[in-house]
Design a protein around this nucleic acid. Structure first.
Lengths: 243, 243
DNA sequence: TATAGTTGTCTATATCAATAAACATTTAAA
DNA sequence: TTTAAATGTTTATTGATATAGACAACTATA
């Protein structure tokens, strides 16, 4: 873990250090001991006071990633990064499903609305045409992985919210509505800092990073059936594109 | 631009606000006027003091994104986000090339070394086999877009650094070395906070986000010819995956 | 030439972030 | 039972961050 922390950047040192340790844990840097190095060692490594390191560790403990035990050291509690393959047949459940014991997909809310310019472009319909909108959260072993907003053409998939709520699966919901197969047409990926709403919904550390995908799924004739903007907790996932 | 800023997160308010404004500019939120809203309006919007907004704007001015003019307002100087398609035939120059006036690819350093476990897995060779390693920076219109570390099997592509330095293109360098075509096999995408070295190399705002790709290119027989880890300035690029 | 609207500067104060040094408490091993 | 090594607590001090209010300087427009 080379490289020093930066001062006067608007990002507190304890937060930079917390981010670095979280990343090191996720990369398996402390797998031999299962513990974070002693506070004094970290303080020396980062060139800061021990109290600053303690603030960082307190933040990681708050996230449930480590647990400090007096006299022993700081134990690593959780170490995860889910892999999410993006392919022509991208499905959440088969992509992440095998990597976690329990998968949940929750429908937070839904509504019928008119397509705005962005949605219309994604679904290749005219702006103003009716679409069904769903807000969902997906969890792996109880931990939120992503928030998503998805739109479907209302005429064809008006029953989507109901079917999704029952099946907890886009694929199964599509099947119930008569669409047995679909493919991923395009995926757009960006990264931003999480805003307040997503920080709460994804149970993130404040100021955390989101990976954002904008995806279009089509039926086998190439007609768009779903446009979705998903927001992933960047420190819990990675994407893999296989060509 | 809904949502308030968060306090006591280790990320200074002026920095959160700078990030939000930068993003809003990039999304085209102020295209009508070409100006950022007045400081008093922003202060009200974000629920902070005007001085805090001024700190944010000062940071953006430092980055060259806006320019504050007394009596007039704060003008938007630069507004960019390059699109980077990831396909079977992913090439940097054809992907980004058309979106910028001038493209440069600079070789910072290179060396011959033994493949470590990660590189060996990528190139499907045995750990310890000789590889050529190159550190490169790619720029669009003078602004750094990405830093990359690339490895090539030394036996086959020992001349890579020299060819790359002359041609400023992986594709052309491969061609010179007898490989007329290659395809992208896998791409892995993650996001992290930039460390000090990348902040400097990419001329980033401190604490900025990096999009990281780990990619393997193979020849037409499927033999790996390149393994590369690229680090992109997240607020300057987006990836598009077409299936 | 006023005037409204904007950015620039100044002073003062409160809170958060970071350092420093010393000591207490707990754990594990000698 | 010591002892070393680790985390926990306390106090004090400094610098960065944020708020508050007032006023100056500049621009565009009525």
């Amino acid at each position: 873990m080379a490289g020093q922390v930066q001062r006067q950047t608007g990002v507190a040192l304890w937060r930079q250090i917390a981010d670095r340790i979280r990343q090191a844990i996720s990369a398996g840097a402390y797998d031999e001991t299962g513990m974070v190095p002693p506070e004094t060692v970290l303080a020396l490594q980062f060139g800061v006071n021990r109290h600053t390191v303690r603030s960082a560790i307190a933040a990681l403990a708050q996230e449930g990633i480590v647990r400090a035990v007096q006299g022993r050291g700081t134990l690593i509690e959780r170490k995860e990064r889910l892999n999410f393959p993006i392919t022509k047949r991208t499905r959440f459940t088969t992509g992440i499903g095998e990597q976690a014991r329990e998968m949940r997909a929750l429908l937070l809310s839904h509504s019928e609305e008119k397509a705005d310019a962005d949605v219309a472009r994604g679904l290749k319909i005219r702006p103003g045409e009716p679409v069904v909108r769903m807000e969902t959260v997906r969890k792996a072993d109880g931990r939120p992985v992503s928030c998503a907003t998805a739109w479907f053409p209302a005429a064809r998939f008006g029953g989507m919210p109901d079917a999704y709520k029952r099946t907890e699966s886009i694929t199964k919901a599509f099947a119930e509505l008569g669409l047995s197969d679909y493919v991923r047409a395009t995926t757009e990926i960006t990264a931003v800092h999480a805003d307040e709403a997503d920080t709460a919904a994804l149970e993130l550390a404040p100021g955390a990073i989101l990976l954002i995908t904008k995806a279009v799924n089509t039926d086998l004739e190439g007609v768009p059936v779903q446009y979705a903007i998903s927001r992933f907790a960047a420190d819990r996932v990675q994407f893999t594109i296989e060509n």
